[in-house]
């Protein structure tokens, strides 16, 4: 599958190089105002691979959300434009955090998560790369799972006098194919972690509630992937097939030695 994926990537790259280059660049570079929310519930929706710009106030907490599928590695990047020296009285520290669909903070395993701007600095860049999204995890584990993710950007430390000053934020999230060595479990999360947003209701004793079907645009671009071979039973098939192939190659190897050949001369 890796081979096919590589091939597809190569094809896309070739196409981008001489056919779709203008299209690709045009769409990817299109900046847009994507308003962040001030809470998880109201988080603004980011488009993957596109910059979102926003003018915020120093001290605000900014929330955006984006989807990520199993096997993907999230790359989040934030550029901050701070007011220049005279408008500020001291250093300010910013932090980027990634939360999963259950609002659990996902550690950044790469990137510069926290950065401090001295009074004279007007630019600040933050990046965060959490662990590769798993396809399954035990309930007790906090491994990243497919679903919605939140990126939260906020000042960790801001001088009293500088609160409320203008700050320009540009945020961008890309998801790339992660390392193939992500531990797989032969299981899949039945429904991605897509948060519910409707208002709750208190039930009467004895009442139950129906299962919510999570609408998740799966966007099946893997038509070549053999979905029927996923799951725990696939291993029986793979092992049987591999044994068969090994036997065929064994016989082939044996046959090769039957005739007199001058192998090394």
């Amino acid at each position: 599958m890796t081979a096919i994926r590589t091939m597809r990537r190569a094809l896309a790259a070739v196409a981008a190089a001489f056919v779709g280059v203008t299209l690709f660049a045009g769409a990817a570079a299109a900046d847009q105002d994507v308003p962040p929310g001030t809470t998880f519930l109201a988080a603004g929706t980011l488009k993957l691979g596109q910059d979102a710009r926003w003018s915020a106030s120093q001290g605000e907490y900014l929330y955006w959300q984006f989807p990520a599928k199993a096997g993907k590695e999230i790359h989040a990047k934030v550029d901050l434009d701070l007011a220049s020296g005279n408008a500020r009285t001291g250093p300010v520290t910013y932090r980027i955090e990634i939360y999963d669909g259950l609002r659990r903070r996902q550690p950044c395993v790469e990137g510069k998560q926290v950065a401090t701007a001295q009074k004279s600095d007007t630019k600040l860049a933050l990046t965060c790369v959490p662990r590769v999204v798993r396809d399954w995890a035990e309930p007790w584990s906090t491994d990243p799972l497919p679903g919605m993710y939140f990126v939260r950007i906020a000042a960790m430390d801001v001088p009293d006098l500088d609160a409320g000053a203008a700050v320009k934020v540009a945020v961008r999230v890309d998801t790339e194919d992660g390392d193939d060595q992500v531990p797989t479990s032969d299981r899949k999360l039945a429904d991605p972690l897509v948060p519910i947003s409707k208002a709750g209701a208190v039930l009467k004793s004895g009442q139950t509630a129906d299962t919510r079907s999570v609408a998740w645009d799966q966007e099946e671009d893997h038509w070549y992937q053999w979905d029927w071979m996923d799951g725990p039973n696939a291993r029986w098939f793979w092992t049987a097939m591999a044994t068969f192939v090994a036997v065929v190659f064994g016989i082939l190897g044996y046959q090769l030695t039957r005739k007199k050949r001058h192998w090394f001369s």
Binding site: L11, G20, F24, K69, M148, W216, D221
Partner: peptide
């Protein structure tokens, strides 16, 4: 080239699987 173009389009247009919560 055609496949590549289609893939490019898919990458550009479909890079954001929108998840409608409700």
């Amino acid at each position: 080239g055609l496949i590549g173009l289609l893939t490019t389009l898919a990458v550009v247009g479909g890079s954001a699987p929108s998840a409608m919560a409700d």
